[in-house]
Amino acid sequence: MGSTDTTDATPFWNLNIPEALHTDHCPAYLEYALDNEKDRRILSTLDADYHRQTWPEVRGFIQDNRIDRFQRVPSDLRRYREYCSKLTDKFGSVMDFVMQERLGWTSLEPKSKTPFEDRDDYKILLNDWPYGIDKRIVHIVVWTKFDLINDPDTGDLTAEARKEIDDYVNKAFVDACGKDNVIWFKNWASLKSIHSVEHFHVMLFDPPKGFVADITNGDRALADKVGYGATVKAMKSLNELKKS
């Protein structure tokens, strides 16, 4: 993937959108990338030049605890940042949106003191804005009302918490998909986009037909529900002008 901030002298914020939508100044929702070298590099890449991360790469990132190496397709990263900006304006924070609209939870008080014992204490949903990975890989997020305890000395999960998640993942996913086709991870605190609701991620490679719909109760990722926001609206306006 390219490491420059422009392609053919085009600023990163104008890549992967029609020329008619190019702007002289960076949109507010992408200004953060001026100081974020990783995302600026991604946004400086054409979608056509983007390399989707393979299942062996995905497993390697997680096994080596290098989850910072996950990234999104450039145009998806743009959509993600635009949508998060709108959510913050409307709901106050992404966390509030997730609580109200995605989880439907009014309280984070678990019913059971034992993790994964009560089905109302956790919810399985698709990741709303998947990484730029092999399209056969399904990215799921398991949200929990109960704490996933970290070791204060290492910042990583305690051995007990890791075993609890392992046991759950084996039962919920591995039995159906196979050990080599399932891997999970919990984001470092510094990489979390939502800090107040506990969750961990599960990746499935080419799961059995119908399995994902069953386990997520037919959930659909936000990325599949929403359009390209301002880009779509602007294109509609341009088309209407052309017809007039």
Rank of each mutant, 00 (worst) to 15 (best):
G227L: 07
L238F: 07
Q100A: 15
D121M: 06
K90H: 12
L238V: 06
N65S: 14
V58I: 13
E198K: 10
D153C: 08
A189Y: 13
S44C: 00
D68T: 12
G229T: 09
P27E: 04
K123F: 06
R119K: 13
W55Y: 09
D120S: 13
D134H: 04
N239K: 09
I124C: 08
T6V: 11
T114H: 10
I183K: 03
K236W: 03
S244V: 14
V202S: 05
S44P: 02
K135E: 15
H201Q: 15
K111M: 10
D118C: 10
W13P: 01
L238I: 14
L46S: 10
W55M: 06
M235P: 02
P115A: 08
F205N: 12
L204Y: 01
A172C: 14
H195I: 08
K86L: 14
R72P: 01
D175I: 10
K209G: 00
F211C: 09
W55L: 01
D224C: 07
D167R: 12
D214L: 11
G229Y: 04
V58A: 05
T23E: 14
D219G: 01
L43N: 02
I62E: 02
E240L: 15
F97E: 01
R162N: 13
P208Q: 10
L103I: 07
A221F: 05
A172S: 12
A230K: 08
K225H: 08
I140M: 04
L238G: 08
W143T: 00
E82T: 01
S93N: 10
Y122P: 00
S75L: 12
D206A: 15
D5P: 03
T10I: 15
N127C: 06
Y168L: 02
N181H: 13
K192D: 09
L148W: 05
D167Y: 09
P130K: 05
W188V: 00
T6A: 05
W105P: 02
R136G: 10
A20M: 05
P152D: 04
L157I: 12
A20C: 11
D35E: 15
M99Q: 06
I42A: 01
K243M: 13
D5Q: 07
P207N: 04
K86N: 11
E164S: 13
Y228I: 01
L108S: 06
D64W: 03
W129V: 00
V141N: 02
D5I: 03
G2R: 11
A176L: 07
K90L: 13
T114L: 07
R69C: 11
L241A: 14
D166Y: 12
N239M: 06
F211L: 15
R81V: 03
N14S: 10
R78L: 03
E160W: 02
I62M: 08
C84D: 07
E101Y: 10
Y83K: 04
D35H: 09
K242H: 11
W188C: 07
P27N: 03
P18S: 11
E117I: 05
G178L: 04
I17W: 01
N65T: 06
D121V: 01
E101G: 06
D76W: 05
V73H: 02
A33K: 00
F70H: 01
D8H: 13
D8L: 11
A28Q: 10
I215W: 00
A9F: 11
R78C: 03
L222I: 15
I140D: 01
V174R: 02
D76M: 09
